[in-house]
Design a protein around this nucleic acid. Structure first.
Lengths: 146, 146
DNA sequence: GTTGGTGCAAACGCTTTGCATCCAT
DNA sequence: ATGGATGCAAAGCGTTTGCACCAAC
């Protein structure tokens, strides 16, 4: 089956899978490619639709299984949108927080984590040992403020 | 149908419903009572189980409908736990954030909102007008640190 | 008496699973 | 060639809905 990525990128991805003993299938590549080319978080159905443009025979179950695999590999992140639906995006490098525009659903990644200092502070105040946090911001992006 | 709350509390609750043109049914009272008496966030099934101890005939659909109503009235809040399951709790007064213990699932409400100042700061940095945020903290409570 | 709420069961949508086939290794 | 991955369809599960009955007002 043909490569969906340019040679250098393809080899990088292939190696990534092989290191974990997983096969570099065109379906997994396609899911990854769709997410890499998107700037917002995508729902499962949108991912499936876009993947089928690259590989028309791809089943929905495969999209679910691929996403599960990619999340485990930390290549992709899963978020809850406000309505409770799950969406996926390429995992940002390092620790970031998504700002979701409630008008157009686009996502801006916020690179500074405001919680790093706060976690210690909150631990001292409450006695609870804070290990992780889940922070999502909602608002209006520049375009939608007009 | 008998009152599930003490007289003073009952009248308060009754009035709350009537103001919105809603009926004060024993099922709604029971859901509210179950949540008021719990210190952690409860899943739908746990709420249903506890409600049936007060009102054995209560159907699951009624629990769903009651919770929806109570969330709309801002008497109850809905959260996503780490595994994606929905859970519910009595709405805290004012703006707070839950700290969920990943060992025992108990919840400590954090009363200071660290995001108030940060929202303005982030708005300036990103150009996005931050309207709301969703912050949940996960860690180990005092008891589970032993 | 009216109207909204309930209980039940069926329907629904999202997600997972079983299995035969296929293909990346 | 072999074992993991896929496609399909069926099953599973949490949630919603339609409807007849009931109970709060």
């Amino acid at each position: 089956m043909g490569k969906l990525f340019s040679i250098s990128n393809y080899n990088e991805i292939k190696e990534f899978f092989h290191k974990k003993g997983l096969k570099c299938t065109p379906q997994r590549q396609a899911v990854l490619k769709v997410l890499q080319e998107s700037k917002s978080y995508l729902s499962i159905n949108k991912i499936h639709k876009n993947v089928k443009e690259l590989l028309p025979e791809t089943g929905l179950a495969t999209v679910y299984r691929s996403l599960e695999t990619l999340v485990e590999l930390n290549l992709v992140v899963k978020v809850h949108l406000e309505d409770g639906c799950h969406s996926y995006a390429i995992a940002p490098e390092g620790h970031r927080h998504p700002i979701v525009c409630t008008d157009c659903n686009s996502v801006i990644e916020y690179t500074e984590c405001p919680m790093e200092d706060l976690s210690k502070q909150i631990s001292e105040q409450t006695g609870v040992q804070i290990n992780t946090h889940f922070l999502q911001l909602f608002g209006k992006c520049k375009e939608c403020q007009a």
